[in-house]
Amino acid sequence: MVWEILSRYGRVFLCGGLVCLVGQILINKTKMTSARILVTFLLAGVVLQAVGLFDAIKEFALAGVTIPIIGFGSTLAEGAIEGAKIGLFEACTYGLRAVAGGLTAAIVFGFVIALLFRSRSKTA
């Protein structure tokens, strides 16, 4: 039981760490800004899901790939693929429907937190 939990979380740590490591290599080598990094990883998630590789990776890596923004991209693509089985309209809209929770959370929490706090000048 303990061993199972350890290996489960160890896998999450390793895979999540590796994904971020790739991001850091990109930052160091190409001086990409954070928005570009996020877009790149999101699109990587969309592509991985579209070609059908994501589920196998997720099986092994668990939150190690769903918590990085790759997971957000895969959910978008997953929704779109599901919608495509129903019709063209659903093919176009089910992607956003699948991430509605995350987007709503980001917008609402973003709004509330920004109402409550202001930016502070940083000390060196």
């Binding site: 800004t33 954070s34 930016s119 502070r120 000048s121 940083k122 060196a124």
Partner: peptide
Amino acid sequence: SHFATAERQYRYPLELGTQPTPTSQRTVT
């Protein structure tokens, strides 16, 4: 000059978690 006003003018929001590049400098407040 002010670090916080210059960051907003030239770079990112203050609370965005970015890493400085090895050549960056800090605006004098």
